[in-house]
Design a protein around this nucleic acid. Sequence first.
DNA 1: GGTTAGCACTCTGACCCCGAGAGTGCTAAT
DNA 2: ATTAGCACTCTCGGGGTCAGAGTGCTAACC
Lengths: 337, 337
Amino acid sequence: MITERQASILGMVVDEYVVTAEPVSSKALVDRRGLEVSSATIRNELARLEAEGYITHPYTSAGRVPSDMGYRFYVEALMAEEAVGMDERRTVEHQLHQVAGGLDEWLSLTAAILSSLVGNVAVVTRPRAQGVRLRNAQLVELNRETVLLVAVMDDGRVRQRILPMPVALTQDQLNERAQRLNRLLSGKDAGEIRSLVTDAMEADEAAVARILADIVQEQRVAEETFVEGVNTALRQPEFSDVDRLLEAVAQLQAYRLRSFLEPAVDGSPGSTQVIIGSENVDAGMQDWSIVVARYGGMDASGAVAVVGPTRMAYRRTIPRVRYVASLMGQLLHEVRQ
Amino acid sequence: MITERQASILGMVVDEYVVTAEPVSSKALVDRRGLEVSSATIRNELARLEAEGYITHPYTSAGRVPSDMGYRFYVEALMAEEAVGMDERRTVEHQLHQVAGGLDEWLSLTAAILSSLVGNVAVVTRPRAQGVRLRNAQLVELNRETVLLVAVMDDGRVRQRILPMPVALTQDQLNERAQRLNRLLSGKDAGEIRSLVTDAMEADEAAVARILADIVQEQRVAEETFVEGVNTALRQPEFSDVDRLLEAVAQLQAYRLRSFLEPAVDGSPGSTQVIIGSENVDAGMQDWSIVVARYGGMDASGAVAVVGPTRMAYRRTIPRVRYVASLMGQLLHEVRQ
DNA sequence: GGTTAGCACTCTGACCCCGAGAGTGCTAAT
DNA sequence: ATTAGCACTCTCGGGGTCAGAGTGCTAACC
């Protein structure tokens, strides 16, 4: 158990360390926070906090650094969230409504905006629907031997695939085929499409249907995860030595991030979750914190996240992740209904 | 002018430096290359080469390092190209024929393969057609208020855009509209589409046509440039200090690379071009070399490139870039005709 | 009992020095 | 033209030193 004053001191240590990135000394707290007590008193309190495990020492005569447990306590009990200002909201919403294009553009722009808002890496995953269904398929002639199959899923995904054309068909004939496929398969999920492939079907029609089933199911990590802000995030002092920096670059690959977000996305819906340092299951992420919020509803949902060193401005980051996630939810709703 | 022996020594210096990444000493040349002369003789020749500007000294008692001019001479006159082996070809072609999907998958896979082949960053740009034409447009209902416009261009590009639906229409009605648009606009380029937007058209049909014209024209750097291998390339010894490493990470952004390739792509068609260090116009690229080949034909062409430190295995890289470019040309031909 | 001044103690980080090692450049002999 | 030999130069790593920052403790104070 820690006293109220100890808690407040812990809060100051975190706030201070987050901006300076240097161990916080007792004197620095008294000076910069205008405390009414002497540095010796603070030292006693710091010693207590350390004994309880909320902070640590890099070495004997250095200042204090919050431990993961300290950050956890801070996030849960101490932190005064810094609300998203009206001006921030305005610029974000302005930018988001500016962009023309599909879901992809929104997602990648959202990641970029969030990243610039918090100065760390932002990750946005594409909303994944429970049972994705085919909305529409189309066949477009590329040349005499190849056709392009374009499929639109009901989660807004668009996928294409190049197919050989067994018999030369005109575009009109292709349209006709596509219409037949649509009447049969539109609104169906991958399993249903597969079960509809019967012997009665023409051979190449059946082939297209099977491919459609694959497409409906398919998940491509690279195309599902939008990462922005790696460059700025790498300039933080925690990466001032080459090995750490390289490690960070490797860690921030889309496919890795995706795997870290996976469990979070499947977790509590709506709420914002914070994973701090050693709370990460992955060994390579022990020095990282993740703030992640799920967006969307029961039908289709994705994740908005910020990834950075454990020394993260949680009080700024958490509300901003939450805000962007709710914004994404609205946008998604507008598109899907 | 340099003598034949000096040239051959220069070649050895380059070959040696490329693998060891350490300044090459006269003794190392004699020992590892089994030369019939003494190291003192080599020292005299090295001094000549230095006087002529082909190599330099980091400091007095260090070995020699090729200058950009030295590399240039090496690439033009000395280098024995290392042919792409049959086994390499087989695996590459196997991998490339394996992948299902559209042009995008091919391009990104190609970049990945090339990168692994040469151990540096590989960049592949999407083929850009001279006058891109619309091949096919389609309207797909997303919900009562929004439609998804999917456009296929004749260079294989597929683009989508979400539009508000002014009047509620069924999917059948949307199909009909799309067919009308296709009859009118298919095979037209952006300018032609614009000129076909007349007052006679219905207002919202005209709006869609205008958007189609935009889409046909549009170039998105991020989606046009496929970069792979950054992670492995960063482990090279030239980036062993933090500042250089950060600089490299920043330099290898897709949008920057794109701008470096731009001039090269517009340059000589077919041939492979090598840009070494200070030959780069861009100030930030003075320590980098680029090997770039154009692929495709008159109608549509893109670039395949490898980017790395000037200490690059040119004799391996150049033939491999050329090979991959010709392969891409074939693939492109198969798809477009 | 909590608070504080004072002081000894510890650890870092910067700096400098030194010596080994590597490699050159030059000279003189072949 | 080549080469042996040698002086010279520069780097790099280890070790020593010193100032500075901060703590932890003790004893006095309110």
